[in-house]
């Protein structure tokens, strides 16, 4: 406990918080969907927020890709892209931070897992545990 108290005191003195807002400049990733096989696809819908577009899961050479194209989202802090087994994200794979609130963007699924049971793509505000939008892909 004493070690923790000292660490806490130091942390309290030097820590600060940043708002990790997502970039808003439109992007156009180079991923070419004609070079991969479409496995699943679905429309993105906002959940209490404005999100629209199409999410697609592709299988490429030894890797799987989630493509958001077209894509548009309301901005927010710490937005992440999740590939989830259900609508509650009870079990999910994080594809990383949302690259931009607008434009074509691709995300490699880390580890090239079996994605049979992963049927949802979610735009998830991780810091505040809020779902911005999701697509059921099938």
């Amino acid at each position: 406990m004493k070690k923790n108290i000292i660490l806490l005191f130091i942390t309290a003195m030097i820590s600060c918080k940043e708002d990790d807002a997502t970039p808003t400049a439109p992007i156009n990733d180079s991923f070419d969907p004609t070079t991969a096989t479409l496995l699943k696809s679905g429309s993105l819908a906002g959940i209490g927020h404005t999100v629209s577009g199409t999410a697609s899961l592709y299988e490429g050479t030894a890797k799987k890709i989630i493509l958001l194209d077209p894509f548009n989202s309301q901005n927010g802090p710490d937005l992440k892209v999740y590939l989830s087994k259900d609508i509650n994200a009870s079990s999910y794979i994080s594809l990383g931070a949302l690259k931009s609130t607008m434009g074509k963007q691709s995300y490699e699924v880390p580890g090239n897992p079996d994605v049979t049971d992963y049927n949802y793509v979610m735009i998830w505000c991780e810091q505040f545990t809020v779902v911005f939008g999701r697509a059921e892909i099938k």
Binding site: N88, A89, Y92, S94, G96, P110, E126
Partner: peptide, 11 residues
Amino acid sequence: NYINGSQGQNV
């Protein structure tokens, strides 16, 4: 939200 690298679970 259990966060472990790219893997996670909401429990």
